[in-house]
């Protein structure tokens, strides 16, 4: 028993010295001890070559492996960890498929997919200055329109006047020895409607000067002479009412599409029972001289004033005008939030 422990070196130093002393004193036992020593087996050199396959690493845990795969594709692994993981994968090639699948989970944006109608997202600078410019432009345009309208209006009146005057002259010529001069016609009346005209009759040989303010329409065919009394002129009838001398100077209300003075074949009887061959002649006979030839016709300035008033109401802007003694517009002023101006009209005297 002591020998086995001595051989295996399990004895302490004192006991081991005692055993050696004992063997020296007993040579027969020494011989037996030596024989026993020869039974100790020599140490083998066998090794397990695939020892690494038996080892376990952290990546063998599924959760750790997947976590590492995600970290790998996210770029979160350090170089050392990545090398270690690659080393692990080299030993476990079957797991490379898993890593490949993880790599495929990375999303790649489609470059062809773009925001439709992207222009609608842009913001553009629309400042108040632009708005003011637009407003100012509108004001200027309105003014230009107003002025142009007045000018055209005036010109139309003149043109129409000339036309109607020529017509009237033609109509009354022959009936009145000294044809009238027609000063103005209200252009508000359109074709087919009764036309208000102002006809001036100058002095005639009979001493007449003008015919009173009156009206003759196609329907009633009457002449109204308010300042001197009414003269009803039914067609083909005889006027029996007394006619007073007329001091006015206008005659309005011709319907050019219907009857004219010259066309009226009316027998008119005055107080003395005299018969006038036609209304033209009758009127001529009734003419009396007047000192003041100033006419109260529809002057273009009245039309202009009316137009300005209409524009002012329509646009909601203050459009004012100044008139001179004759009633003509001397200046037009426009006042708005953004712009205000004053334009002199007419020639300065």
């Amino acid at each position: 028993m002591f020998f086995l422990d001595y051989m295996e070196g399990k004895l302490d130093e004192i006991t081991q010295r005692e055993v050696e002393s004992f063997l020296a004193e007993n040579p027969d036992l020494k011989e037996e001890f030596d024989n026993l020593d020869s039974f100790i087996l020599p140490q083998d050199s066998f090794v397990f070559e695939n020892k690494d396959s038996l080892r376990r690493e952290c990546y063998d845990d599924v959760n750790v492996f997947e976590d590492t795969c995600v970290a790998l594709i996210e770029g979160d692994l350090t170089d050392q960890d990545e090398a270690k993981f690659e080393s692990f994968l080299s030993l476990h090639t079957e797991l490379k498929t898993e890593v490949s699948l993880f790599r495929q989970t990375r999303l790649v944006p489609d470059p062809l997919l773009s925001m439709p109608h992207r222009d609608s997202l842009y913001r553009r600078r629309i400042s108040a200055i632009t708005w003011y410019k637009v407003a100012a432009a509108a004001a200027v345009l309105t003014t230009i329109f107003a002025v142009t309208h007045l000018y055209e209006h005036h010109r139309d009146v003149s043109t129409e006047n000339a036309s109607i005057v020529a017509s009237l002259k033609e109509q009354v010529r022959g009936e009145i020895k000294h044809p009238a001069s027609v000063n103005s016609v209200n252009s508000n009346v359109r074709q087919g409607a009764p036309i208000k005209a102002s006809v001036l009759f100058p002095k005639t040989s009979a001493g007449a000067a003008a015919i009173s303010y009156g009206r003759l329409s196609g329907s009633t065919e009457s002449v109204v002479i308010p300042s001197g009394g009414n003269v009803i002129v039914p067609k083909k009838s005889i006027i029996t009412r007394s006619i007073q001398p007329i001091n006015a100077s206008q005659l309005t209300g011709f319907d050019l599409n219907d009857k004219t003075l010259a066309d009226m074949e009316v027998d008119v009887l005055d107080d003395s029972g005299r018969t006038s061959p036609s209304i033209g002649k009758f009127l001529t006979d009734q003419l009396t001289p007047v000192e003041d030839m100033a006419m109260k016709v529809v002057h273009p300035s009245k039309i202009a004033r009316l137009g300005l008033s209409v524009i002012s109401v329509a646009t909601g802007r203050i459009i004012d005008y100044q008139t001179n003694k004759e009633g003509e517009i001397s200046s037009v002023s426009f006042d708005a939030k953004l712009v205000a101006f004053n334009i002199p009209v007419g020639k300065e005297k």
């Binding site: 997947e66 976590d67 795969c69 995600v70 594709i73 996210e74 898993e98 699948l101 993880f102 495929q104 989970t105």
Partner: peptide, 17 residues
């Protein structure tokens, strides 16, 4: 969330493949 999402996507893709 990224980890869980990736694992889900990986499993889905693998399953479909």
């Amino acid at each position: 969330y990224i980890y869980r999402g990736r694992v889900f996507l990986k499993n889905y893709i693998g399953h479909m493949e």
